[in-house]
Amino acid sequence: MIKKSLHWIFHLYYDGFTQMRTGKKLWAIMIIKVFILFVIVKWLFFPDILQEKFHTDTARSNYVLDHLTGENNATH
């Protein structure tokens, strides 16, 4: 039963992909786009600042509290 279901799901995708025309172009665009976004853009330009700068939630809280109370605004 499980084997039959897996076989059906495989063929749903396999046949679908092989019979596509414009769809192939769309998949190429999607893959390139996801690569640019997640590998280049995210990795090089968009670090999660608080995650990278601090190792604990307490440190992150303190940093944001300092920001809210004006103690680390002068560096802007």
């Binding site: 999607m30 968009f46 608080l50």
Partner: peptide
């Protein structure tokens, strides 16, 4: 297909450009 994942960039921006806001 073309629009897929264009919204995810906003989540990147939250973490980088708007980190204080994201925390709050």
């Amino acid at each position: 297909a073309i629009g897929l994942a264009t919204g995810i960039i906003m989540e990147f921006e939250f973490g980088t450009n708007w980190s204080n806001y994201s925390w709050i």
